[in-house]
Nucleic acid binder design. Structure first.
Lengths: 200, 200
DNA sequence: CATTGACTTGGACGATCGTTCAAGTCTTCA
DNA sequence: TGAAGACTTGAACGATCGTCCAAGTCAATG
């Protein structure tokens, strides 16, 4: 990394360093000094780029939400109309679940940010935005799944998305504790069955 | 509170003080000094009762799990065999949900303890025990619900309990963020529908 | 080329943390 | 009742934290 970066680039680098530490050691272990060390930069520079540590954490949280969108891979829609909505949903959930299992540190970090957002006034909107983005992504995926299978939802799409996000949230937190992938996928499969009853 | 308590009583008092702070300000704001202040006790006494702060946090986490059992109120089973399993399940979920909404700080604290348990080796078993206890309570409630409605589960009871706990976890975390009670109960109602299809 | 301003450094500061400990107070039991 | 031991106190210590700032370095502009 070149020295004397424009402040915007330096900010991005520090956010990345902060997220690396947060994923590895938890949000509570993100300190100004450690971020500076991780980025190979002096202590004062962090305060120069971010007015306060809280601003840095906020920027990290915003980046997490941003990457939620960027990393949302609709995946190859292998399904055809012949496949049936149930199989299409299970395929979409399985692909989403691969992404979850591939990034356990990021998943745990997301829960940490959520709880922190519920405690610190300065982050009060972060959790709401997390859900807004996640729900929109879920709704998009559900709409596309229905289109692929040639069916339509008999419920409000946002309502269905809320159900799916609830299940994924619960399944992910549980998996972070017991790492039972088979059980998690089985439970999500049951949710797919429920969703199937909401199509026609 | 009398002075010069037996160490066991003093420990209980300090755990209670710690939980009060943790519910109000978050687990990251639980410090030895604040616990001592909340309990109206000197700083050194906390270290005397608990060898380290980590032991205090562990004792607090254990107490949370313990209270999970103690506060699990099966509630008045108003249902009769005439009522149908779906209504019995909805009733049980609604009663459980009242308890959730009555104790938001405790719910948030539970998530904080879970994530902290996933980060700190000294708390590594706490999250597992949280789920063990919760799952057992859910299984008991589901068994009793089926008995009340005069039906039997067509799935392994633990499997059904896992599904319910997943849903409750996701619903609670979401509610802590948006406080939309109606939506949360609607989603849990959908889960009740799913559970109904697992009975005969 | 010189100067201006953006970027960077590292030390200093006060606050707060967990832990330790010598000393004091109270209860218990022989 | 008096000695022993359990309980309690508050100060002290070193570590770490976020923030600040004077000084230095580099890139861009006139």
């Amino acid at each position: 990394m070149r020295a004397y970066l424009p402040i915007a680039d330096r900010r991005r680098q520090l956010i990345e360093a902060g997220l690396t530490i947060a994923e590895r050691d938890g949000v509570s272990n993100v300190t100004v000094r450690r971020v500076a060390s991780e980025a190979g930069v002096s202590l004062g520079l962090v305060s120069y780029c971010f007015g306060s540590k809280e601003e840095l954490i906020l920027a990290m949280a915003t980046q997490i939400v941003q990457e939620l969108v960027e990393h949302s891979d609709p995946g190859p829609h292998t399904g055809s109309a012949e496949e049936g909505i149930d199989l299409v949903l299970r395929g979409a959930l399985a692909r989403m679940w691969e992404q979850v299992e591939r990034t356990p540190g990021r998943q745990l970090l997301t829960y940490e940010i959520t709880t922190r957002s519920l405690r610190e006034p300065g982050l009060s909107d972060v959790a709401k935005r997390q859900y807004d983005v996640t729900l929109e992504l879920a709704a998009d995926a559900l709409a596309q799944a229905a289109q692929t299978a040639g069916v339509t939802w008999t419920r409000d799409l946002d309502q269905v998305a809320g159900l799916v996000v609830m299940a994924i949230d619960g399944a992910t937190l549980r998996w972070l504790v017991d790492h039972d992938s088979e059980a998690a996928l089985a439970r999500l499969g049951d949710i797919a069955d429920l969703l199937t009853t909401m199509t026609v």
